[in-house]
Design a protein around this nucleic acid. Structure first.
Lengths: 212, 212
DNA sequence: ATAGATTTTAAACATTTGTTTAAAAAAACT
DNA sequence: AGTTTTTTTAAACAAATGTTTAAAATCTAT
């Protein structure tokens, strides 16, 4: 139970397993990944996965919860930042984009595992509530009341902000096939699309027929 | 090799297997579904799945291709309809919504299986090209040239149209948990959100500062 | 250095997996 | 009727799966 949170090049066995499991689970999902896949990716004996994590399910939940936090924690933090609403939305989109650029399978992984077994969210509700009860909703209400932003609920606005970016990476393979572009072509498209989405959302929110 | 396309209440064994496989694969994915799951769901002996479809992989591909067609064929048809561009976009959104309302797991299923194994798309490229080479792109270009629609490529516009609806159903479980609503509450939200998305896309496209 | 605890290993375990076999049942045909 | 073909069944198959065991290796402390 030592050396569990360092960044030294000498990783503990537990860390090696976690990192391998992260890679394998993200790529293949819970059902598609085997204990031996993970042991091989970590370069360790199979028995060690159960020695450190008791079972495949426990190891998976450990990874899933980390990914779920990664998915929502950054969002919750930005939502509570003391910055303007317009800038906040732009930053949320930029952040989501960078996060998924670094972890292209994150969105489809989280969505799929939740879809297959919604109970897996049970242990991670707090971070969802953190998003729900952030400054974001109150700030939106203020913007609406002063007539700057078109009337809309946070429940409707949040999906508009995130779905475009997440769909971009979930549908990456399909996009490349459909438009016959390679990795480089997709990256160029993705960057342009991100800016387009920012423009789309902000234009829709801020430029509307004010009825006073 | 008879009775393969009737709607009679007496289904052939092959049909029973297909329908069961459709349900099980959509619910659990390829990796999560077992041959015995499908046989049980169909109420038939295990050996029959291989008697009619040779292997689990072949049975899966048969179902996957059908779902992939279902996913894109309706879209391609609407894109080639001789109607106005504005109405076309509205109809595309309505159609996607109704399709996913009937098959809530369709979007996550197709996206996930493609993500896990992009080669599965290989046999279904034609329908992708059908979408690509539809009337939609030319019509968009006309609208842009006459100054009615903001300059944008079809490659950027199509995701805007579909991602919102598809994300809605892919994230259904998460939405219900986050906003503490039940099935009924979600349906009400979904209906409102669909109209919002139509308004969002059409407003963005048609109401902009024309520079002549 | 030695004893004790911890970590790692190879091997085995019982299930489950996709698939096949060979016989039985049903259907189709003469 | 009887014969042949098609469909269905129960049983078995090898391979793969998650997990455990018991011994070996390594580390920790006296």
């Amino acid at each position: 139970m030592k050396n569990s949170m360092t960044c030294s090049p000498f990783k503990s066995t537990e860390e090696k397993i976690r990192e391998a499991a992260k890679r394998v689970f993200l790529e293949k999902g819970f059902d598609g990944a085997t204990s031996r896949d993970i042991a091989d990716a970590a370069g360790i004996n199979i028995a060690l996965t159960n020695y450190y994590f008791r079972s495949k399910e426990k190891l998976f939940m450990s990874i899933f919860e980390e990914m779920f936090q990664l998915f929502f924690n950054g969002i919750a933090e930005i939502m509570n930042k003391p910055i303007g609403f317009r800038e906040k939305i732009a930053e949320l989109i930029d952040h989501d984009f960078e996060l998924l650029k670094k972890n292209p399978s994150l969105a489809i992984f989280v969505m799929n595992e939740i879809h297959r077994n919604p109970d897996r969210m049970a242990t991670s509700i707090e971070v969802l509530k953190k998003v729900h009860h952030s400054q974001f909703e109150a700030q939106l209400q203020q913007e609406i009341e002063r007539g700057a932003v078109r009337p809309i609920t946070a429940m409707h606005l949040m999906p508009l902000i995130f779905c475009n970016i997440q769909f971009l990476f979930m549908g990456k393979a399909m996009h490349m096939k459909m438009w016959q572009v390679d990795e480089v072509g997709f990256d160029a498209f993705a960057n342009k699309h991100k800016e387009l989405v920012k423009d789309l959302v902000l234009t829709y929110l801020y430029e509307y027929e004010k009825v006073t």
